[in-house]
Amino acid sequence: MSEQAAYRPGELEAEAQAADNRSRWMLALPAVVIITLAAAGPLMVMVVYSFLTPGDYGNVVWKFSLEGWMNTLVQRDIFDDTLIWADAHLSIFWRSFSLSLITTVLTLIFGVPTAWFIATQPPGKREFWLFLITVPFWTNLLVRTIAIQELLRSEGVINLVLLKLGIIDAPIQMMFTNFAIGFGMTYVYLPLMVLPVYAAVDKLDFRLVEAAHDLYAGRWTAFRRVILPLIKPGIIAGSILVFIPSLGAYVTPRVLGGGKNLMFGNLIELQFGQGRNWPLGAALSLMLMAAVMIALMWYVRVTSREQSDG
């Protein structure tokens, strides 16, 4: 070996490279193992379960069946046995999907100015503002959601103040409405938008903005043509971070929306719980994953194309 190495020093280098690679792999190994076990393992279980027959009292029977997958989209009518679209599943999916879109847009509207404000503070003060953004994460999600209830309820803070000021003369029904869900979701997911956008604005070279103004760009043009393309990676990251968990969100809509209308997450839970149809539940959750993947691929493609066009 050493003899060879003496003749071909390139090989020695390659050897060192390989060793280096190996040690890097070794360092990454724990993470890889955890991801494989925690993500791929259960996923495989779900795939297998989605092709089995539901057990009488939950669980699955080891008998192949396409019923679970078929029932995500079409079902036999309860009363006359004809095949019909599973409109309940589709409308519940649409509800979750549109809620996620609205949440993403709202967090963008509130998050981008917030991130901009923080990033343009003097360096010493930024930490303080960032610290404030993370404060909600210190408390459990359920506790925060229930705290929002105290604000929104008929005898809650908002209604009491409005009544005292004489702006309204009867409490406004805010709890258990779509407004309450939107309010709660925006609050819960706002930090996930602010942080990546902040990181992008922080790196923004403000001389470029000045240059745009020097070249007679108005404030809007400078924002659209210079700032937006530069902070776009942050906005993309923030949107993904908000959109995906919103799709599966289930505590906030349930507690603030009153649980009258199912979210997709609740629909899946129903199949694994009271519905006792695990294959359908598994198929529905895989369908949700597929929808997320398609939406993501589309989003990344559209936004990156715009970027190269711009």
Partner: peptide, 17 residues
């Protein structure tokens, strides 16, 4: 019975769609 329970689940899902 499980088949009856399945019918109820369908009605229940419909109720909350």
């Amino acid at each position: 019975a499980p088949e009856t329970q399945a019918l109820y689940t369908r009605i229940w899902t419909d109720l909350q769609k």
